[in-house]
Design a protein around this nucleic acid. Structure first.
Lengths: 156, 156
DNA sequence: GCTTGATCTAAACCTGAGTTGAGCTTTCAC
DNA sequence: GTGAAAGCTCAACTCAGGTTTAGATCAAGC
């Protein structure tokens, strides 16, 4: 083994491209666990570089940090994800991506039907009156498009 | 014309499915303009139903409220978007959607190459080391995947 | 004229994913 | 052994897109 199996927060940050503050934040969220020196400084395992890169990749796939924490929590004894884990997880991620692509393609097709139509009518517009709520984005509760489509009567 | 060309905020909310608080918020953001009664209550034009539906559709296409405000500001004299405006705007939206779909498809293809590989290596992983930053999501500044790919040397 | 429901304002609160700052302490290389 | 760089904690702040709450006022039907 190397002499330096333990790395400081700054090195973990440098090796993963993540800000030091973000690493502390991940630790606070329970995504990472750090040992401490006598003086109270964090020391990470080299293997945590993998763990952080797992977090980044999963995040890019659209998982929230809570989702990722849940995945990591399912691994035995705080182990980092290995090949078998990754195969299982990435297969699930693929399904998510397919869903997102399909939703965007539906939207695109509706938009194609709309270009040049200019109806902008709540009653008639396929874009507005679609039933699927799949493409919800952004934070916070909000009224979803289509939520009350049945009740809308436009008399503009 | 109708006797009731002006509608109260609650009616606009009911007809569009948007919460009353959201409509006030849109007004504060400059997306809507309201007249006022002698008592200070808002009165909207019936045509504002269209305007709100434009906001909802554009929002679903991935525009922020600021983007939408900018679009609306380009219309002459506070006019609501008509067919020609909508054709112009929706053509631009289509391009955005195509970009998002393409980014997701690239991610999916990379993921396919990764399933079963389990490398999770910063040095080798195509998912991690990709150059494109297109699929950035979420609020706040953050280090982007791939930002510093050239500097990363993993020795895990 | 009264009551009820709708509306008003302003400010505070929410989520998610972090960043920033102040004021100290630890570590490391020379 | 010393000085600089890196680390520590905790709270407050950011941003978007709103919601919630409180207390006051308005509009309308009977």
């Amino acid at each position: 083994m190397h002499r330096t199996d333990l790395i400081a927060i700054g090195e973990l940050a440098a090796r993963t491209g993540v800000a030091v503050s973000a690493i502390r934040f991940y630790e606070a969220k329970g995504l990472l666990a750090a040992l401490r020196t006598g003086g109270g400084q964090r020391r990470f395992l080299r293997a945590d570089i993998r763990r952080v890169s797992f977090i980044l990749i999963a995040q890019q796939m659209g998982l929230s940090l809570d989702d990722i924490a849940a995945e990591l929590a399912r691994l035995p004894a705080g182990r980092n994800p290995n090949a078998a884990d990754w195969a299982r997880i990435s297969t699930a991620l693929r399904a998510r991506i397919d869903t997102r692509i399909a939703a965007l393609e539906r939207t695109r097709d509706l938009l194609d039907g709309c270009i040049g139509c200019g109806c902008l009518s709540l009653k008639k517009c396929a874009l507005y009156n679609r039933a699927d709520k799949a493409s919800q984005r952004g934070a916070g509760p909000r009224y979803l498009l289509g939520d009350r489509a049945g009740e809308i009567v436009e008399r503009d």
